[in-house]
Design a protein around this nucleic acid. Structure first.
Lengths: 339, 339
DNA sequence: TTGAAAGCGCTAACAC
DNA sequence: GTGTTAGCGCTTTCAA
């Protein structure tokens, strides 16, 4: 149905090889032949068949992004950074939505094995480091956002979870809080346990006793956060602040507070993580931790491309980027000290 | 580097054709041979090369979704419907983010021409019907969400823009408003002018004079909505309600009101469209029009698959789905009639 | 600068 | 039920 390279060649009175040269690198062709070929391409409305091209050249010029959940603006923001930089480097980007399921992450990785894409960027906290390393050892190109995978061929970019979590907790302590809930995501996720680590560290350094019952899992989503709050409340625990490991769970905390008539930040202070765009539309605005999401995406895709082409990195492999605690209405309030 | 089908065949002591049969439809193979082959596949960690497969079979089993902007939850919700249904039908989905640029829409369409994907679903209000029809006439499979493209081979699913817009305006009139701003998206978009049409219809039917100066373009995004409000205000126009053609622009209206100290809905009533998940996190909650987003995605992908395989539709081609006006805090208030 | 020819890895006719 | 073989449409040596 479609025109093929041989049709273009015939129409232009040249060989398929010449058409290919015009289409690709482009050097070693007379301007005159080039024009003839371009004209034929145009007239026949020719589009090179990607499958044939990929098969022959053994590459697809495509990068996959496996994101935890595309309904979460944190991920889409990163993806935009990836996409724009990839575009500048002549790569296509295929976005894959893992919908919070590890099995889906694995599923999408088959697109890497079957060579649909040349490399993959993972923005998912679930798949284990081991699994990633195993694949990389087999020769596949994978880069990672949001954690540090210790493998010489895996580029990583992340913020220091422990550090900013301590900062958040210190901010809450400064506001007079002593009983601070930590709302975790699924426990296997690095984002969960590293942020918990920061929470514990700050408590310890400030000589505030750790109450394990104040740690709950909210699965990184709104519903999970809401349900976690209900569980805590059902246990009749006392607390005056919540540190949610991401903004989505903080949304659940807001819902909980609204239903119970709890005012934020007076009755309960709330801090999230991600600086999800939703956070600034809440009332009161949600205090959160900002990360340079777009830039992180842009940087990692460059590294991935380096790795795919040279099988090594031009300079660094691991990037840590600074995060920033944004104190907003949901926590900017000093509670009275209990006697 | 990777194992190929011939390696598997050798290892299992069969021919490549048999391996292929096991891998694909699967009938016409003895359970015994099947087991042998599966074992070899497993041991060699074999993954069929997608490019070779696509080239030979002349299809990719991939569907593209070109969305206006993936930062907008309206689109990601639809995409989830598409993806899950496509998965059930053995199709992969490639998500493409047009970032509000027509040129990007066209760019992604080349993935259709070069056969990277077998068909495309467009959720973009910009690319013209003519351009879409032209491609379909050339034999490409395209389906459309959010408008009605009049072509026997284009499946469409949409809600009746005129109808629900009239409803919105009638609701505002019921609340006592007479001077209602219409915040449009870019004017070429069907979503803009059809919603404007509904606005005009309701005004006319209720004998409320149309004030053209109350129609402004907000480009379908938060910033656009905000700037449009500033322009209206700078002109010292009087109005008591805003009907924004989507929720994103309504966010800009909220920002404007907050900065000016205007209370919603007392000083200004606001209604949006999309039932974007953000709408219910606002204070007050945003009145909006809900569409069955997930279902729309699921339905249209089925139709696209029908069309790609049979080159026709099993039953209907055009689907209209009901929308529902959700009256929430941002408009649920009766203003006093001016004398 | 251009052309001829081989072959990327797979599937689908057609044999057997 | 299984094997042989041709060829999908392109790129890339190699030769001219």
């Amino acid at each position: 149905m479609d025109a093929k390279i041989i049709d273009v060649a015939a129409k232009a009175g040249v060989s398929p090889a010449t058409v290919s040269r015009v289409l690709n690198q482009g050097n070693g062709v007379t301007p005159k032949t080039r024009t003839k070929v371009m004209k034929a391409i145009d007239e026949l409305n020719y589009h090179p068949n990607a499958a044939a091209k990929n098969l022959r050249s053994q590459k697809s010029m495509a990068i996959g992004v496996i994101a935890q959940d595309i309904n979460n603006a944190y991920f889409t923001e990163i993806i935009k950074g990836i996409e724009n930089m990839a575009y500048a480097r002549k790569y296509k980007v295929f976005i894959c939505d893992a919908e919070n399921q590890v099995e889906k992450e694995r599923d999408y990785l088959t697109l890497l094995m079957n060579r649909t894409m040349d490399g993959v960027i993972m923005i998912t906290p679930q798949l284990s480091d081991e699994e990633i390393c195993e694949l990389v050892d087999k020769g596949y190109s994978i880069s990672v956002i949001g954690r540090n995978v210790n493998h010489p061929k895996v580029a990583c970019i992340y913020t220091d979870n422990v550090k900013f979590s301590s900062q958040v907790v210190e901010h809450l302590l400064d506001c007079g809080h002593r009983d601070i809930v930590f709302l975790s995501g699924y426990p296997e996720a690095t984002d969960s346990y590293e942020r918990l680590e920061g929470y514990l560290k700050a408590l310890k350094e400030n000589h505030v006793p750790f109450r394990p019952e104040l740690v709950e899992n909210g699965d990184f989503n709104e519903t999970g956060g809401y349900e976690a709050m209900n569980r805590l409340f059902a246990k009749k625990l006392t607390f005056t602040a919540v540190f949610a490991a991401n903004d989505e769970m903080a949304l659940g905390v807001y819902r909980f507070c609204e239903e119970r008539g709890f005012s934020i930040p007076e009755r309960l202070a709330v801090v999230g993580v991600d600086n999800n765009r939703i956070s600034k539309y809440l009332t009161p605005r949600l205090s959160t931790v900002n990360q340079p999401k777009y830039t992180m995406g842009a940087i990692i895709v460059e590294k991935l491309i380096d790795q795919m082409n040279d099988n090594q990195f031009a300079d660094k492999r691991v990037f840590t980027v600074d995060s920033e605690l944004l104190v907003r209405g949901s926590s900017d309030f000093h509670i009275k000290k209990k006697k």
